[in-house]
Design a protein around this nucleic acid. Structure first.
Lengths: 298, 298
DNA sequence: CACTGTATATCGTAT
DNA sequence: ATACGATGTACAGTG
C-alpha cells in the first residue's frame, strides 16, 4: 500500500509538555529502535500537539488524538456534538474518524480526499478536515488532549475475501446446472436499458433468462431490481418473446416471494461460499422446493 | 524476544482509580484531570500487552493496539489479510475495528455485541472477537506491538443532525403546499402490503397520493420502491380508484425519470435541509420545471 | 429473533 | 465528474 520511511529525526516535535503527568521520555523512545514507527505525546499543550500534528501530516503518518472535544460538521448534512471524550483518527489519505466508545460507525467522519489542518482557537485545539465537491467541513475542538500519537504505517497486503456475489457468479459460470438443468450462460454484465445484468443466458428451451445474484437473503428491493431488468429485456425483445427472470440468493423473505410470484419471476436458493443449496432450517418460514421443478405458473 | 522496557508508565494503573468503567459523574468532572484517562504501553512484550488488554476489557475501557499483524475473519464471509501495520480499536460495547492508513471503512471489523479476548499463541499476540448469531470470529495476530493504549471514555452527548429524510418530512407536514397546492397529508408511516408509506394523503381533488421521500438524489431503486407502494395501495383500493405516486428528493437521475414516466409516477424537487426547491444548476442535465405545474402526461 | 428501509452511508466500476 | 449497484454494509424501528 505505502512506502516506509527512512527518516528518524523528529526531535523538534518531541518537546516535552508542560505538565508532568504521564510524561513520555521521547528521546529515549526514539533511540529504542532505528525505525521510528510511533510517536506519542501525553497530555501535551495545544501548541505541542499542533506541532506534532502538522509534522505528522507532513510525513503522511496516521494520527490518533484522544481527549475531551466537541464536533461540528457541515456538508451533505449538518451536525453538532457536545463535549465528550473521543478518539479521533486522521489518515494520510484525507479521511478522518471521530469514535466514541460505542458503535462500529464513527459518530462523525469524513471520507478520503479531505485536507487536514490544525490550529489553536480560543484556547482550544482545532482539528479541521475540509473538501470541495461536495463542499464539506468537519471541525473537532479539543479543550484537552490526553494523548496524541503519530504512526508510520507500512502495509502492502490486500484483503482476500471469499463469499461475495462475484464468487456466487463464478460458481454458476463454472457449473451452470446448479442454477437449473440445461441453463446456458451467454453473457455477464450484459447491458440493458435498466443497467447491467449479472448473468444473461438461455434455458434448455432456448428461452432468454435474466439472472440477478445476491450474496445474502433478499427482500423486496432485489425482486424489484430483477423486474426492472426483465422489463428492459422484454422491451428490447418485443412482446412476443418470453423472457424469464431468476433471482439467486441463499434465501428470500415472504414479502419478496409474494412480489416475485405476482411478477412471474423465479427464485433459486444458492449459497455464495459453496455454490450449493444452503442447508435448510425446516423451522424457518421460507421453505422452497430446491429439488422440484420451477413453478411454471406463468 | 525483544523484552526491552517491560514496565512502562503503568504506575498509575497499579493504583486503581476505581472509576467504574468510564461512567464518571458530571459533578466530579473537576477531579477528572487527576484521574488516569489514558494508559499506554510502548513496545510491550506480548505478555505485558496481554495483561494490559485484559484489565482494560475488565474496566470497560476503549483500547487501541498498533503494530505489525495479520487478520483472519470467518463469519458471514471469510477473509484473510497478510502482514502489515494497522491500528486496531476495541470498544467496550464489543465492536472492533482494524484500520489501515487508507479508507474510511475498516479493512476488517466486528459490530457491537462481540466478546473480546486476548492471548499469546505461537509467539504472537492474538486479539480475538467473537459472537454467535451470526457465528463470527475475528482474529488479529500481532507479531509486534508498537503501542497499546487504554482510554477511559466519558461521553454523554448525543449527536444532533439536520438534513435527514425525517427533516424533509417535517417540512412537508408543516407546509404541505410545498409539495403541491392543495395537498393534504392524512397519515405518516401508513401500513400497506408493501410496507410503510412515508406520507399518505390526498390531492386537491381528493385523489389518494403516496409520497416517498429521499434526502438525496434518487435513482431507479427509489422509483421502484414508490411503485411497490402505489401498487399495494391500488390493490387495496381496487382498480376503479385512481392513486397517485410522488417521489420527493432534491434531484433525480435520467434513468429514474424515464422509469417514473413509464410508471405514471411523479417527481417533486425539494431540499431536505431547507424544505424548498433546490437551487438549479442550469448546466446539469436534470432540468425540471420547478414552478410549472406537474407534467400530466399520464 | 426476522423484516424493512435509511445513511453525511462508503466503495468500486463504468461511462 | 455522475450513475449505478454491492457491501461481511451498520443501524434504527417495528412486529
Amino acid at each position: 500500500m505505502r512506502d516506509q520511511r527512512t527518516e528518524t529525526h523528529r526531535d523538534n516535535e518531541l518537546s516535552p509538555p508542560d505538565h508532568d503527568a504521564g510524561l513520555i521520555p521521547a528521546d529515549h523512545e526514539s533511540r529504542c529502535n532505528t525505525w521510528m514507527t510511533v510517536n506519542t505525546l501525553h497530555r501535551p499543550t495545544h501548541r505541542d500537539a499542533l506541532v506534532h500534528l502538522e509534522s505528522a501530516f507532513e510525513r503522511g503518518d496516521m494520527v490518533t488524538v484522544f481527549g475531551r472535544c466537541t464536533v461540528d460538521y457541515d456538508g451533505r448534512a449538518t451536525s453538532e456534538l457536545g463535549p465528550g471524550d473521543r478518539l479521533v483518527v486522521l489518515k494520510p489519505d484525507g479521511s478522518i474518524l471521530v469514535h466514541t466508545d460505542e458503535k462500529r460507525t464513527p459518530v462523525n467522519w469524513q471520507p478520503p480526499g479531505c485536507t487536514h489542518s490544525a490550529g489553536v482557537r480560543d484556547g482550544r485545539l482545532r482539528v479541521r478536515s475540509t473538501r470541495s465537491s461536495p463542499d464539506e467541513r468537519l471541525d473537532v475542538f479539543f479543550e484537552r488532549v490526553e494523548q496524541c500519537s503519530a504512526y508510520a504505517v507500512n502495509d502492502r497486503s490486500d484483503l482476500e475475501l471469499v463469499g461475495s456475489e462475484e464468487d456466487l457468479r463464478q460458481h454458476i459460470l463454472s457449473d451452470p446446472s446448479i442454477l437449473e438443468a440445461g441453463f446456458e450462460p451467454l453473457e455477464t454484465e450484459r447491458q440493458s436499458d435498466a443497467g447491467a445484468l449479472d448473468i444473461f443466458g438461455e434455458d434448455a428451451e432456448g428461452v432468454p433468462v435474466v439472472v440477478e445474484l445476491k450474496r445474502r437473503r433478499v427482500g423486496p428491493s432485489a425482486a424489484s431490481q430483477l423486474r426492472r431488468y426483465v422489463d428492459a429485456v422484454r422491451r428490447e425483445f418485443g412482446d412476443n418473446e418470453p423472457v424469464r427472470g431468476v433471482l439467486v440468493a441463499p434465501s428470500v423473505t415472504d414479502r419478496a416471494t409474494d412480489l416475485l410470484d405476482r411478477e412471474g419471476l423465479e427464485f433459486v436458493a444458492l449459497d455464495p461460499e459453496t455454490g450449493e443449496p444452503p442447508v435448510e432450517d425446516e423451522e424457518r418460514g421460507n421453505e422452497q422446493e430446491t429439488k422440484g421443478e420451477r413453478a411454471d405458473d406463468e
